Amino acid sequence: MSDAEVTDRLPILLLNGPNLNMLGTREPAVYGSDTLADVVDLAERTAAELGFGVRAAQTNHEGQMLDWIHESVGKISGIVINPGGWTHTSVALADALVVPDVPVLEVHISNVHRREAFRHHSYVSPIAAGVIAGYGIRGYEFAIRRLVELVV
């Protein structure tokens, strides 16, 4: 995890799920040419502008994601998450996201509702304070701005 805390406020936890490490090369017609490093940079700049730090992490291993969420209890202001494929499959992830008892914003780079039918269902959305889809990596910026509105 990178840790770019800029204030004494608890940082925002930025989580990216499976295959998001391949941004920039995986299906650029769907996900664009921006990389995961670009996502993290945008998130850190946006959060810093608003007086928050970011703890960013990406994994292709569901158990690792759950561990990071569990370990964040009492240490974060909120969560911005792009669960990737776990959006549509993981009850365990949805269950874990309520453990820290902080606002959660769900982000998708593509508009999942214009894609395959299986992508229309999310286990995360019912527990999220908001869902942002289809704005490319700008969705992360929007999510951080909304999260800060919720916690300040």
Rank of each mutant, 00 (worst) to 15 (best):
I137V: 11
M22H: 09
N16Y: 14
E5H: 14
G136P: 05
V30Y: 10
I132L: 11
I137M: 08
Y31W: 05
G63N: 12
E44I: 07
D95L: 08
R145E: 04
R55L: 11
T59S: 15
V30H: 13
R114Y: 07
V54G: 05
R145A: 00
V99Y: 13
A96R: 05
S122W: 05
T25R: 15
R55E: 10
D67C: 09
I79D: 07
L10I: 02
M65K: 03
Y123Q: 07
E71T: 04
I12Y: 07
E106T: 11
S110N: 10
A94C: 06
R146E: 13
W86G: 03
P126I: 10
R26F: 00
A129D: 09
F52R: 01
V99D: 11
V107F: 01
A143F: 08
L97N: 08
V80F: 08
E27H: 14
S72Y: 09
S77Q: 03
D3G: 10
L42N: 15
P11F: 00
G84E: 11
Y31A: 03
E5G: 11
V73K: 15
I76Q: 15
D41Q: 10
E116S: 07
Y31Q: 06
W68E: 11
R138T: 14
W68L: 15
E27I: 09
M65G: 02
R119F: 05
L36V: 06
N21L: 02
V40S: 06
H108G: 01
L150H: 12
H113P: 02
I81N: 13
G51N: 08
P83H: 12
V73S: 13
T46H: 04
L20S: 08
Y140F: 10
G53P: 04
E62A: 09
A43W: 06
D38E: 00
G51L: 03
Y135R: 15
S90V: 13
L66M: 06
L23H: 00
V6N: 02
G32I: 04
